[in-house]
């Protein structure tokens, strides 16, 4: 653990300025990931700007969307009546993540920004381009059973660990941010980035930009939904593969579908082509299997994660089956 300064501003502007003007400063909210990373020496901020005093916890319905403050706790969001009624997929995804203790501490903004759990990223003695650009990717030729099958580069094959983000990707959420140059909104699909040549950058946020809220648009995905997470124990484990599935059904006919996958890429992996394929099809296992095949186009495995080429489509089918039967 390095030595660091700690400030706890009450004004959003003060917090943003503090981080924007100091490249070694970082925001801290729940701290459930950052503190671990600091203990391991993976992140060594010189200054922590604690944002817990900012008024960003509100969950409210505005116009055509549900607005969730960035500092709302994961547990609060998962159990919130508006979330459960309007976006049960989001509630399921949140409850599939971490443990009750962590959900009681972790915030929405922090959940979006959690770092990969790639073991090479976590061990400062091993190579990792994300932690130390240019040091190499330890996972590429290493133990890569948890790693990406989509969207990776030869610099990084890590996956994004958030469950909540998979649901938000499926639900077409928008991320509201505030930064030194003012406020802007980011389509969810544009928040996280693929590793490319700069895996050290997880997101498209500019220095000093602070997530203030997430907006989830109203939709018809209030009943036939499933967040299906396959993991190595029944709870408190990161996904091997997870699928957020939502269907809008007219009888047995699929009017609209939303699909996103976790545990397969550097960002939540939206399956737009598979969604398109499902429209107008009957909600049967055969349709789901065809959609899964569409979804898997372009997937490529490494030495230890070949199983994902089979587990991922199977999980898509199982998630869609579960959603349709909900």
């Amino acid at each position: 653990m390095n030595q660091f300064q700690y400030v706890r501003p009450t004004q959003q502007r003060t917090a943003i300025t503090a981080v924007a003007k100091d490249p070694n400063a970082t925001f801290i909210a729940g701290g459930t990931n950052l503190v671990d990373l600091m203990k391991r020496g993976v992140m060594t901020p010189q200054k922590l700007v604690d944002i817990n005093r900012l008024p960003l916890t509100k969950i409210e319905h505005q116009k055509n969307s549900l607005r969730i403050g960035a500092l709302a706790l994961n547990a609060t969001v998962a159990n919130h009546q508006l979330v459960r009624e309007r976006h049960p997929l989001l509630a399921q995804a949140l409850n599939a993540g971490a443990s009750a203790q962590l959900r009681n501490m972790a915030t929405v903004g922090g959940n979006l920004l959690q770092r990969t759990r790639c073991p090479y990223f976590y061990d400062v003695t091993l190579p990792c381009n994300k932690r130390q650009p240019g040091s190499g990717c330890g996972a590429l030729e290493g133990i890569n059973r948890m790693h990406a099958i989509f969207g990776f580069s030869d610099k990084c094959i890590a996956v994004h660990p958030s469950d909540m983000s998979v649901a938000l990707a499926a639900l077409d959420a928008t991320v509201l941010v505030s930064g030194p140059k003012g406020d802007r909104s980011i389509a969810f699909a544009d928040l996280h980035r693929l590793p490319g040549d700069a895996p050290e950058k997880d997101t498209t946020l500019e220095p000093g930009e602070l997530i203030t809220a997430v907006e989830v648009p109203d939709g018809h995905f209030t009943r036939y939904v499933s967040y299906y997470k396959v993991r190595e124990r029944a709870s408190y484990a990161f996904a091997l593969v997870s699928v957020a599935a939502a269907l809008d059904l007219d009888g047995d006919n699929i009017v609209a579908a939303r699909l996103a996958m976790g545990g397969v890429a550097h960002k939540p992996w939206r399956l737009a082509a598979a969604e398109q394929h499902l429209i107008g099809k009957p909600a049967t296992e055969a349709s789901f299997r065809q959609a899964a095949d569409v979804a898997m186009q372009g997937a490529k495995a490494f030495k230890h994660n070949e199983y994902k080429l089979k587990l991922a489509p199977n999980t898509i089918v199982q998630a869609l089956k579960t959603a349709a039967a909900a």
Binding site: Y120, T125, R233, A234, A237
Partner: peptide, 17 residues
């Protein structure tokens, strides 16, 4: 070198198991 280094990587049963 071990790449499993904590109880998040090294799984033991939780109550649900």
């Amino acid at each position: 070198r071990y790449i499993t280094k904590d109880l998040a990587d090294y799984h033991v049963p939780v109550h649900a198991d």
